[in-house]
Structure formats: structure tokens, C-alpha cells
Design a protein around this nucleic acid. Sequence first.
DNA 1: CTGAAAGCGCTAACAA
DNA 2: TTGTTAGCGCTTTCAG
Lengths: 345, 345
Amino acid sequence: MARVARTRATLRDVAERAGVHSSTVSRVLNPKTRPMVSETVAARVLEIANDMGYRANPFALSLKTNRSFTVGVLIPDITNPVFPPIIRGIEKVLGPAGYTTILADSDEDPDIEQGILDRMRARQVDGLILATAHRADQVVEECEADGIPFVLINRTMAGEGIYSVTNDDFGGIAMAVDHLADLGHRRIAHLAGPQDLSTGFERHRGYLEAIKARGLEIDPELIFVCRAFTEEQGKTGLEALLDSAKPFTAVIAGNDMLALGCYDALEDRGLRCPEDMSVTGFNDMPFVDKFRPPMTTVRIPHYEMGNAAANILLSLLEGEDEEPPKSVCQTLELIVRGSTAKARD
Amino acid sequence: MARVARTRATLRDVAERAGVHSSTVSRVLNPKTRPMVSETVAARVLEIANDMGYRANPFALSLKTNRSFTVGVLIPDITNPVFPPIIRGIEKVLGPAGYTTILADSDEDPDIEQGILDRMRARQVDGLILATAHRADQVVEECEADGIPFVLINRTMAGEGIYSVTNDDFGGIAMAVDHLADLGHRRIAHLAGPQDLSTGFERHRGYLEAIKARGLEIDPELIFVCRAFTEEQGKTGLEALLDSAKPFTAVIAGNDMLALGCYDALEDRGLRCPEDMSVTGFNDMPFVDKFRPPMTTVRIPHYEMGNAAANILLSLLEGEDEEPPKSVCQTLELIVRGSTAKARD
DNA sequence: CTGAAAGCGCTAACAA
DNA sequence: TTGTTAGCGCTTTCAG
């Protein structure tokens, strides 16, 4: 197991070669203290440091400053294609700012989530971006109590001083309802996401309000609340609805994964989409336009959400005094594709 | 910007409360040195440490031991759904072993890749898992020269002492060729991936050999080499083939993304898959079974690849003397779905 | 078996 | 403007 000892130049090595004291080198290398050093010395030091390929030892630096320049990002399910673009959006901002993002995937399991958080705090991350929040969330409360800077993304929760970047879930669903109503659908079902998540909750609320606003009847039998945003739950849910409810011609799924499950259920029953049943999703995650049929869904700006959350966190970490916006709520867009059609009469 | 000072117990705090010297506490907390301490003292120290919620300061620990317990994972394109399961497979092994994985996405750009690597080395990652390797790869060579433990995944390159986990790309394509030949296809095109990647190269080679083995004719006009494994390149490639080559009835794409591009090209031209053209992909990435039509493809064991690579790296990092396997090559499976059908005569 | 002390590489307060 | 020094929290040699 020949592991070569990788060793690199220290501040002192550079200092020696430059004929100055190591603290001077330190001052030169830190933009804030650079002005304290004379031009000539600074130039020489810089050249030598560069020449020697000097790189600060992050451990020593962190030990001294008590900052890791590291940010934890918690994702509920990395295999859900909504998240990669969000992650890219985050890294695009945090990377150039000198922060390394530590990504972790809780697989929607609270115990794993707690474990990850513990490890991240043990690692002394400077801040957190959480895509895992529940409407009442132990982990988030812990972060708050702890005082660690964090921002919620996609999902949010009530509370003072909680930074978040979310979408207009309420209004997004209204667009779906209007679209279907315009197509002549009168009985529109809803496959709601988990009600302990703000997304599932708000979209459900949006459904109820929009149905009412359109003068349609709210039939509780037309609503099924799924236990998770998974394809499997979507299938189960639509099957339950098909079995128990009086006929309906359209279903609004709480997100794209649930809608995908609807596809499965319909296929199993020999029903066609959109001829027999219109289906809408939510998120416009990558690839839904390739599905059979291409999915009508509400687009959320993935990449931009990542940017926004990262920027808020950054100003929390570095901002002098300007308070960043408490919560950003993005407006959405309905993308009409092939999974919705005129209601058959 | 009220940032609460988070402070936690140090070794000395624990030592004080336990009435022993801090070095004793250190010995107790480290499994390797625990035996040096008497049972009674160890028990008391452990309880107190636990009680105080002691967590080692990672910066001090790293500064002292020169290890970060951090592993860098480089992915060429995180929006490609093949990778999330691979990442999960990696984390599943590395996490419990006490390593934090730092994920980065090069977006297939060599400059970004180089930048990421520089930053990871600056961060003193203990090892690397690279999914970005080219057949001749500057970055990989740098890692080798540097002596940092690393293992390649999915893609590989020639070279002594390079650890890698790859797939039987050669044999995988042969299965696709056989499948199509069995369906009566005689003129089978190939949309090859970039030839500077082992995957693109080996699959191309596999295509040539398998075509020959089946007694079919190799027609250079039936081969198009794509510049990248992207949907867009797949579309471009198949269009070029359709424009220039004599008629053919099937196309073997270098991976699923290219095959997806084939779908686009066919749709644009009003051709139907599989009626007018059979298409195969490679990877069996998540969701290809939902596409229109569901894709026939070669399945690679994503999650297991991640496991394997992580295990090799782990034994590189921790292994006493047993040398881990130099290269693991996984056997593959053809998944027949709806994108392939009997050749029309 | 336990304590004392040095030092990893860096920053920042203080001196000159 | 530059040098000196202490010390961040830990491991590890060396004494006892």
C-alpha cells in the first residue's frame, strides 16, 4: 500500500525563500491584510508563493478561523431528476465564492436525515441548504436552535427568521385546474402529496381553491393523499381513486413522480392517457417531455432556485449588514404537452 | 447578521471534568489507543464525553493527522440519470466508513474538471473517485504523479496500477447486435460515443466485432461518431446517417442519451420507432422504461458500481496490506423493451 | 497506565 | 511596515 507522502510548501517555506517572516507572507496572501505590506515585498512574496505552488493548508486555516468554507446540501432523493439542476444552481454560486458543497441524500428517511445533519455539524459546515424540510421539522428546529445559518429550498415551513426559496405551489396548481376546466373537464381528481410537506399541502390547498373558483364541485372522494412523492404511491393512489370514486376524466398529481405513477395505473387498467384520462404533473423535471405521453406539468425554475438559495446563504455567511430577503417565492408556468386533452362527453 | 457563536466541548473540557489529563481522554476516544487505558478510567471518560456531547474538532484532527476523511467524487454530468444511483452506491459505502464525499460535476468540460481537481487537492481530499476519465487523461495522470489514491469508474484508461470499475462495454454491445440480428435486421447502424472515452471506444469496437461475428457486412457509412454523449448529438448523428447512408433498419446508440436523440430525429422525420427503425441504448438509466417507446438497452449495475469503486478506494485508504483488485469489470444484461422490433422486409 | 510537552500550519494581537 | 509570539484542538512521543 505504497502511499506517497504528498507534502507541500508551508507559509514558512515561502517566508524563508522570500527572506521575510511568515506573518508577512500571511498578510500578503490575505486580501484584507495585503495593504499592510509594502508593494515591493508583496510582489516578491506573491511571485515566490506562486512559484512554489503554495496552497494554504485548509486544516490549519480552519482550526484558526473556525470556518470550514464548506456548505452542506441536503436532498430528499437524489434520483429524482428535479434535484440535479437545483444542485448545479447551488454549486454555480457557492463554488466561485470559495465554498465546497457537501451533498447528502436522505432518501426521505428522517433517521438518515438526522444522521447526516449530525455528521455535517460535526464537520463544522458553515451553513446549510435544506431541501428536506417538513412543515413541522425537528431537524430544522435544531438548526435554528443551533444558530447555524441555513436556507430552505423547494419546501418550507412556518417560522420567524427562516430563509427559504420556494415556488408558488398554490398558484401553480390553479393553472393546472384552469387548463383542465378549459378543456371541459368537470370532475377533476387530485392525487395530493404528503400533507406534512409544504409542497403537498399548498398544492392541495391550491386545488381546493381553484376548483371552487371555477364553480366546480369539490368531491372529497376525488382526493387521495399519497404517503410519498413516488411513482409507486402515484400508482397506488390513482388505483384507489379509480376503484372508489364516481367516474372522473382528469387527475392533477402533486408532482411529476406521482403523475408517472398515474401512467402506470392507467396502463395496467388498459386506460389511455389522455384519451380516457388527462393527467398533469408538477415540477417539469427533466425527461418528462420524453415520456409516453409527454407530460403536461407546471414548470419550476430548478436552476434559478439553486442560485437564489445559494445567494441568500452566501450573504448570510459573508454579508456585512444587509439582510437578505427572508423568503423568495418563484412564479411558475404551465407547460402543456400530450397528457391532457379535451374531456370526452 | 446575528451569528450565534457555536462552541463545543474540547478534549480538555472533558479531561477536566473527568479529572484526568487530556491525553488520556484522547487515548480513550481513539479505538487504537483505548487498550492503553485502564477499564475504570476509560469507562468514566467515555460517559462524561458522551454526556457533554463531545465531538472531535475535525480541523485539529486533520491538521494533526494530515487526513481529511474526505473523498472527492467527480461526475461528468450530474443531470444524466445514470449517475445518481452510482453516487448513492458510493455514499452507502463511504459514509458509514466515516468519509464525507465531496461531489462535483464537471459538465464534461476539461477546464472545469481541472479546476475542480485543483480545489479538491487544495482541500486535501484523501482520495478520489473519477467518472470523468478520458482514454488519455491529463487530470488522471496528474493524480497518478501526485500519488493520491484514486479509482476510475465507468470509464477507464490504459495504465499500470490504475484502479477501475467498469462494465463489459464490448460484450454489452454484442448482445444488442445479436438481439437485432435475431430480429432479422441486416443493416444495423451505430451511433458511437466519443472515441476518446473508453466507453465510446469499446462499444464501437464491440459493434464492429459483433457485426463481423454475425456474418453481417461492416459498412463505414453506417457509423457516426458523436462528439458527446448528449441527446442533441444523438439527434444530429442519426440525422446525418439518415441523410447519407443507404437505408438501414436499426441503430445501436452508444448510450441512452444518444438513443433519446435518435427518438427526436425519428419523430422529426415522421418515422416511427420501432416500426420504421429499431433503436437500442446503453446504461438502462432510470426512466428509459417510461419513454416513448420504452427503450431496449443494456443494463449496467449502477448502484453496485458505486459500491465497488468505494470499496476499492476504502481499502486503498485503510487497507493494511491486502491489495484490492486492480480492475473490476461488471457483466451486463440486455433489457428488451419496445424500441426494437422485427425488421420489416 | 498516566501525565507532560511539543508541534501540525496558520492568524492576529502586540511590539518594535 | 515588519517581526515576535501565543494558541486554535488535537495526537504522540517521552517520562514517570
